[in-house]
């Protein structure tokens, strides 16, 4: 069945932000959870991230940003995916994201939005659930 295909996930660091501890820990954790993980490295523009996502044919783009620019960069990634007919690619995010920014990001289809102190299982479950839903929609 289609949903048994391994989840392919791109962990991406948009913008001018070198804080990659969380992203690297997540790469490790997603891999240990049985996903195929691709990591962009830091300093990626939204264009570069979307290009990699399409080339690698990923199910999920997981954005990590701790520099406060999430309200511009996260939606930009989502927008570019839509423009390139990859609307079904799931976009999740996390970092230092104030509570009152979350509704707008969620409205735009960017979910998760976990902050410091979130347990890995919570994040992994979120990704798995979203992928299941997305695949169910297609089937």
């Amino acid at each position: 069945m289609s949903y048994e295909r391994k989840i392919r996930i791109l962990v991406a660091k948009p913008g001018l932000d070198g804080h990659d501890r969380g992203a690297l820990v997540l790469c490790h954790a997603f891999r240990d959870a049985g996903m195929e993980v691709i990591y962009t490295g830091i300093l990626q523009t939204p264009e570069q991230i979307v290009e990699t996502a399409l080339q690698e044919d990923v199910d999920v783009v997981a954005l990590s940003l701790l520099n406060g620019a999430h309200m511009t960069l996260f939606p930009r990634v989502r927008q570019l995916l839509i423009e390139r007919n990859a609307e079904d690619t799931i976009v999740c995010g996390g970092g230092i994201i104030p509570e009152h920014h979350k509704p707008e990001l969620i409205r735009q289809g960017i979910t998760g939005l976990y902050g410091p102190g979130t347990l890995l299982d919570v994040i992994i479950n979120h990704v798995v659930e979203r992928v299941k839903k997305e695949r169910w929609k297609i089937a």
Binding site: G15, L16, T45, N67, G68, A69, M71, T72, L73
Partner: peptide
């Protein structure tokens, strides 16, 4: 353009 959205943020 690389600074877009990041000015004065942190």
């Amino acid at each position: 353009p690389r600074a877009y959205g990041e000015v004065g943020k942190c």
